[in-house]
Design a protein around this nucleic acid. Sequence first.
DNA 1: TATAGTGGTATACAAAAGTATAGTAACATC
DNA 2: GATGTTACTATACTTTTGTATACCACTATA
Lengths: 119, 119
Amino acid sequence: MKFKLIDIDLIKKCPETYLLAVNDTLNVLAGKWKLPIMASLQFGKKRFKDLEKEIPKITPRMLSKELRDLEINGMVTRTVYGTYPVAVEYEFTESGKSFKKVIDAMVEWGIEHRNRVLK
Amino acid sequence: MKFKLIDIDLIKKCPETYLLAVNDTLNVLAGKWKLPIMASLQFGKKRFKDLEKEIPKITPRMLSKELRDLEINGMVTRTVYGTYPVAVEYEFTESGKSFKKVIDAMVEWGIEHRNRVLK
DNA sequence: TATAGTGGTATACAAAAGTATAGTAACATC
DNA sequence: GATGTTACTATACTTTTGTATACCACTATA
């Protein structure tokens, strides 16, 4: 615990390691749609059609592809139910859940920035 | 002040406005290089060549283009000094400074995620 | 006079990302 | 048996993004 805190503080003080950590995060989020999907899943597990409806302008091709990427990167789990019609649910893993802090920070900044720009 | 807090809480509870705010942030950060540039500027104002050296693999074309975008979006200021050889400094605006919270959240998550994956 | 450093731009090209549109399989209801 | 629903995939295409390479103007120093 103590080591971890020291570790993070050290990384924050060194431009190179700081940039590395930002890039780690960036790689998981690459593209136009991963963050909107992540934001949508903050509100609980969702099905394919729910996400499609909630995220404006996304095509099923993109949604399918991006969900696959997020699954590969260990951000979401995919559960298939053998009901009629087939139901598939997407839900956060632990990594996905812990990402909430980042998205909340982005939401807060987005609101602030919008206020500043409109003012 | 009180209104603002209520406002943010409301937005966080509504998927649509939440997604909107995420997209506002996303638009300012579009592309591969803006976040690395922002992260690099966390450590104080920098000159063109400094940024070029600090950000691995970026070309001057991309650096120039992305800095211009960030300037247009009110994230950085550009100051030219008529010295020999011409010096140009890039520095955060208030919006840029307030963005530190977001980047720090990303850095922290990046480190955590890396630890989880390597474990 | 040749060279080097700063802060870029120009041109051409390659690769990646995203879009539009259509279609599929499985079933269940009307 | 026609239609609708869910969760996609296939194909072809356009747009955006990024790369490689070369080049410019300025000026101080050797």
